[in-house]
Amino acid sequence: MIWRFISFKRLNAFENMAIDEAIFRENQRADSPPTLRFYSWSPPSVSLGYFQATSKEVNIEACRRYSVDIVRRPTGGKAVLHENDLTYAVITSECNQLFPTDILGTYKVISGCIAGGLSELGIEAEMEGDGRSCQDDSLKAACFSSPSRYELLVKKKKICGSAQLRSKGVFLQHGSILVDFDPLKTCALLLPQGSDQTLQVRKLRGSVTSIHEQVGASVSVENICHVIKKSFEKKLNIELVEGCLTAYEESLKLRLMNDKYMNDKWNMEGKVASDGRKNSD
């Protein structure tokens, strides 16, 4: 089977989310090929889960101070700081037989592909079997504080966190693979002001790891993309063919960027006037 591969690009948070949703909507509308995409975030950004309350989960003032953009994802889950990470997105119809319609089964298949790539770098990542909930209320907003089932751990520390959106037989799963990790900045941006940051930094250090920490040296993002791409091809028995957005996806991306992802009402309140699914006050 042939998949479309959209190669690594550094883009801002609003364009990144608009592209993922545009591909997702195009998949619902037409019988387009499954897509794998790699990207990172420039400037650094915090992404929030669909239902998260921005003012409760993010230190907005600290984000301004650090020039970090804030965007709400179309997917669920918790807040993530995207600075030294590689993000992947898989968008496909449920009908292609590669993924079970069972949601956790999809996480398992994609985690297996990422683990295969990390293994090429000498990192033996394992899937979280049971999921464990974060017992620390002050850390609950941060995605990497608590692995869910089939997310990837290395020596019990989380290295990749993922989130999903499903509708009309199509799913979008995107996730953040930590290339490097800065617990200090993560706490400064994702924790409420006044919380005991020293303690939380220590806890995050004990529960989160990164490719650089595991390899003990710098690994280029291009190299990480290469090994993960190869692993997807091998494990799913697919051919990834370099492609770009269709004209429909390009135009939808621009509309989604302007109307939704660059809209403060969406990012701060989760509401956009122009989208029937989200009503303005």
């Binding site: 239902f51 889950g77 959106l165 499903r166 509708s167 009309k168 009503n279």
Partner: peptide, 24 residues
């Protein structure tokens, strides 16, 4: 959705989140 809004067949009328993801 809010009362008085209009919903089309085969289009989303709401969104739900479970531990596994977001679903229209």
């Amino acid at each position: 959705p809010e009362v008085d809004s209009y919903v089309e067949r085969d289009e989303p009328f709401g969104t739900i989140e479970s531990a596994k993801g977001v679903f229209e």
